[in-house]
């Protein structure tokens, strides 16, 4: 048999394998080009508390989870419950990033559902969020002690996501200098 008669079959098998592999991919999730880079500079007002503004300097010296959320976001409400549970975890700081939201509504929401965040940055216009490459809520950035972005979780943090991906990463970053 000549090899060229086999070409269609080979070609088909290759495409088939590709499609089979493709079934387990997530085409909607866009990886962030910011991973491995220092967090973007920013200066935002805070939602609650005594500290009036928050900047990238506040991320230094500790492992941070920066969680982008909004009251209009349906999936954030689902995530919130688990975040409350996580908030008792002492190894890292959980920062909030309130995205294109109404301040009054946001405060009201936190009062009702509880506040898992240590500090909450407020981005009403969404301009700073563009610097972070935010494209949907909820999103969570994992930032190390040197304020380098190490991981981005797209979609809500669930128990499964926490146990399988985030927790091992957080523990690893904790042990880094």
């Amino acid at each position: 048999m000549k090899i060229r008669f086999l070409l269609p079959l080979i070609f088909f098998i290759l495409i088939g394998l590709l499609l089979w592999r493709g079934l387990s991919l997530h085409p909607n999730e866009i990886p962030s080009p910011l991973i491995g880079k220092a967090s973007p500079t920013f200066s935002l007002p805070t939602l609650l508390g005594t500290k009036a503004t928050i900047t990238e300097k506040d991320l230094k010296g500790h492992v941070t989870l920066l969680n982008v959320w909004a009251t209009w976001c349906y999936a954030c409400a689902l995530e919130h419950e688990y975040l409350m549970e996580l908030a008792s975890h002492k190894d890292f700081k959980l920062f909030g990033f309130n995205y294109k939201d109404d301040n009054i509504a946001a405060r009201h929401w936190l009062k009702e559902h509880g506040n898992p965040y240590e500090i909450i940055a407020v981005d009403v216009t969404g301009t700073t969020a563009i610097d972070w490459g935010v494209y949907g809520t909820p999103e969570t950035f994992l930032i190390d002690k040197n304020s380098i972005i190490r991981y981005k979780q797209i979609g809500p943090i669930t128990q499964e996501v926490w146990e399988k991906t985030l927790r091992p990463l957080v523990e690893k970053l904790e042990n880094e200098a």
Binding site: I30, P31, S32, L34, W132, G133, Y135
Partner: peptide, 8 residues
């Protein structure tokens, strides 16, 4: 934009 969102 690419710096923030990648080639996507």
């Amino acid at each position: 934009l690419v710096k923030r969102y990648g080639d996507f």
